[in-house]
Nucleic acid binder design. Structure first.
Lengths: 198, 198
DNA sequence: GCAAAGTAAGTAAATGTTTGTTTACTTATA
DNA sequence: TATAAGTAAACAAACATTTACTTACTTTGC
């Protein structure tokens, strides 16, 4: 039996992410992808059931899970509040700023009904993503370190600005000077933390 | 000469926004839209050059500009920091929570290359959107009220959480109890303000 | 050891369907 | 009656997916 060519599978994923980042999710077509990856359209269907299957696997396996892993590196639910949040911001910024195409697809997770549904489902089936962060919030709340909010509200207040800053980071790569540096990220992080402390 | 039927033009816009909100931007087709609006596809082309033209006008004229107007209502660049930010949050939350379909398209402004490009261009041609907010930040900075950041960074820190909270507001309309109330929004706003003050 | 059979991976080209848009015609009002 | 608004049906192009075939590797029988 002829063995699978893993390079081709990787080319499919990498080039799909590139097309999405450059032309948007709505402009990714199977035939365009095949041509760009220098393979036959049929080859994509050997590795993925259909386009939905490809997009969902790309989103969950190629982007969301590696991102989660990167964000949680050296993070523990027992950390003190400021240290923990700073670690999460730093991990997140480093990963996303170095993986432009991953960030581009990640952003589509909220607007694309297909990806959003896939995320909700995987979140239930695989166990919650970013679980240690939820535990971290619970502990901080119990210790009386931070103001009392619902879990989902903590995420909005503490992480939405970071993703917006990453977005601006990429906007500024096309301009003369980058304003979003790791130092700026840390300053912003401290600003966000200060608001949240009791 | 037969006069334009303005109801039909409005139906096109309203129903396009509905389809986008329920099925996503990528699932809006001209034929689906015509059928849902009970008109011939040709009628859409009397009012819009092509699909791009429709989407861009929908985004800029139907969503972005009314949103800007609502956000800036009773806001002045001379307000003190906390009062100004609270007014912006309140205006924004009221408008978006009552206009689900507008919010849905607004979110696509970042991920869709077509809409993003249209926004950049309109921002230059029409004069900057949300200009009073930029002036407000400049004044606050000059008065030494807030920490020194680039203009774009203020937006990220002060408004990204709000849009995320609106997103959660709509997620929670499908659950037993709404957690994002106007009071919660105000609490969150104060948290964000506190972090930003010197 | 080794060749030939077996098999899934892979290709080029075609399939039917859906898409944005237009054609040829009808309708309603100034 | 003149004319733009509007319709139903059709158009070509683009789309996801499949068909019919070839390729390259593993396994098996000697």
């Amino acid at each position: 039996m002829r063995p699978k060519n893993l390079e081709k599978e990787e080319a499919i994923r990498t080039i799909a992410l590139q097309i999405i980042a450059e032309e948007g999710l709505e402009n990714l077509t199977m035939q365009k992808l095949a041509k760009a990856a220098n393979i036959s359209p049929r080859t994509i269907y050997i590795k993925y059931r259909d386009k939905e299957d490809l997009l969902i696997k790309l989103f969950i396996e190629e982007v969301l899970e590696p991102y989660e892993k990167a964000v949680l590196e050296n993070f523990h639910a027992g950390m003190d509040f400021a240290t923990g949040i700073k670690k999460l911001w730093q991990n997140s910024f480093r990963y996303l700023s170095r993986n432009r195409t991953h960030f581009a697809l990640l952003r589509n997770g909220k607007t694309s009904p297909l990806l959003n549904k896939a995320y909700q489902q995987a979140n239930i089936e695989q166990g919650q993503y970013f679980k240690p962060i939820q535990q971290f919030f619970k502990q901080q709340e119990k210790q009386g370190m931070i103001r009392n909010f619902h879990q989902d509200i903590y995420s909005a207040l503490l992480f939405a600005p970071l993703l917006e800053l990453v977005s601006e980071y990429f906007d500024y790569t096309e301009r003369p000077r980058q304003i979003i540096t790791e130092k700026v990220i840390l300053d912003c992080c401290e600003t966000v933390i200060r608001g949240m402390l009791k």
